[in-house]
C-alpha cells in the first residue's frame, strides 16, 4: 500500500504470542523475567506448550493524512497490535518504528484512569497527567476540554455519578487535548450518544487534513469504518489478511472471509450494509 505521504509508523514483521493456560503463563513469565535479568533474549519464534500466536508476522506502514481502520473479529489481535504500537506491550518478533518526536495518544478503555470519587474537573488533571500533560498545559486547556466534552455543570460533580456516555465524552475530550500526531482509538467510540459520536468523527476528519497526522481506528463495526476510514486493514486470527484503500471491497472481503461459519442471515445483513453504502458513495 504505497502512498506519497509521510510514513508515521512502520510495523515490521511483528509477532506476539500469548499462553492459553494461566499456570503455564505464570511459569513462562517467571522464566522470561529470570532470562531478562541475566541478559538472555526472550524474543523467540518458537511456541512453548499451550502458547499461540496472537499476532503473526504483521507488516504495514501508517501514513500521514489518513484514517486507517483495523477491523477483525473478537480475538483477532487488533488491540494487541495497537498496544504494541503504543509501547504498552512488547513484541516477541519484529519492530515498530515511529517517526521521531511524534506524539502518540492511544485510547483503549475510555474510563480507565478516571476516579469515580473525584469530580470531572479533578479527573481532567488526573487523566491528563497520565497522558503526560503538566499542570500549566492542563490549566490552559481545561476550558477547551470542558467545552468539547459538553459536560456542562456536571464538571464539578463526582465522575461516579456520570453515565457511561458522559464518562466517555470526558475521557475522549482529554485525549483530544493532547493534540496527538498519531491518534489510536481502540473501540473507544462504541459508547456515547450519536451527536457526540458525530462530533468525534468530524474532529477526526479535521485532524487528518494535516498530512503529518494519522488516526488508527480499531473496531469491529462495519458502519463506523464506512464512515471515517480511508484505508482498511483486516486482521484474522492474528494475521493481516487484507490491506486496501477500497473500503467497500475490503469490508466485503472481511465479511466473506471472517464470517465463515456464522449465520447466513447475519452475513447477508452485513453484506447488504456494505453494498448499500458502496452504491450511495
Amino acid at each position: 500500500m504505497e502512498r506519497n505521504n509521510k510514513i508515521n509508523i512502520r510495523v515490521k514483521n511483528i509477532s506476539k504470542k500469548f499462553c492459553r493456560d494461566i499456570r503455564n503463563n505464570l511459569w513462562y513469565s517467571f522464566q522470561d523475567v529470570l532470562k531478562k535479568q541475566i541478559g538472555i533474549s526472550i524474543r523467540s519464534n518458537r511456541l512453548r506448550p499451550k502458547e499461540f500466536w496472537a499476532l503473526k508476522n504483521i507488516t504495514f506502514d501508517i501514513y500521514g493524512g489518513e484514517v486507517t481502520a483495523i477491523i477483525g473479529m473478537n480475538g483477532s489481535g487488533k488491540t494487541t497490535l495497537t498496544r504494541i504500537m503504543s509501547d504498552i506491550f512488547q513484541a516477541d518478533q519484529g519492530e515498530v518504528i515511529i517517526a521521531d518526536k511524534l506524539k502518540i495518544t492511544p485510547i483503549f478503555a475510555l474510563s480507565a484512569g478516571l476516579r469515580p470519587l473525584f469530580t470531572g474537573r479533578e479527573n481532567i488533571f488526573i487523566k491528563g497527567a497520565a497522558y503526560g500533560m503538566d499542570k500549566n498545559t492542563l490549566e490552559n486547556k481545561i476550558n477547551d476540554i470542558i467545552s468539547f466534552s459538553e459536560i456542562g455543570d456536571f464538571i464539578d460533580t463526582p465522575v461516579g455519578s456520570y453515565s457511561s456516555g458522559m464518562r466517555s465524552r470526558l475521557s475522549y475530550s482529554i485525549a483530544v487535548a493532547t493534540h496527538p500526531d498519531i491518534f489510536i482509538i481502540d473501540e473507544a467510540l462504541a459508547v456515547g450518544d450519536s451527536i457526540f459520536r458525530t462530533k468525534c468523527f468530524e474532529h477526526i476528519q479535521n485532524m487528518i487534513q494535516d498530512e503529518n497526522k494519522s488516526v488508527i481506528y480499531v473496531t469491529n463495526h462495519i458502519d463506523k469504518v464506512l464512515r471515517i476510514a480511508q484505508r482498511l486493514l483486516v486482521l484474522d486470527k492474528g494475521e493481516l489478511v487484507k490491506d486496501t484503500r477500497d473500503i467497500t471491497e475490503g469490508l466485503l472481503f472481511y465479511v466473506n472471509h471472517c464470517f465463515k461459519g456464522q449465520s447466513l442471515e447475519r452475513k447477508n445483513k452485513l453484506l447488504d450494509l456494505v453494498n448499500q453504502w458502496g452504491s450511495d458513495e
Binding site: 506519497n4 510514513i7 512502520r10 541478559g39 524474543r43 506502514d61 509501547d87 518504528i97 515511529i98 521521531d100
Partner: peptide
Amino acid sequence: MVLEQYKYTKFIQVRIR
C-alpha cells in the same frame, strides 16, 4: 516521501543500562 528521510525511534530492545 520515503521513510529514511526522517529520524525514527525504534521500539526494540536496547542495552539494559
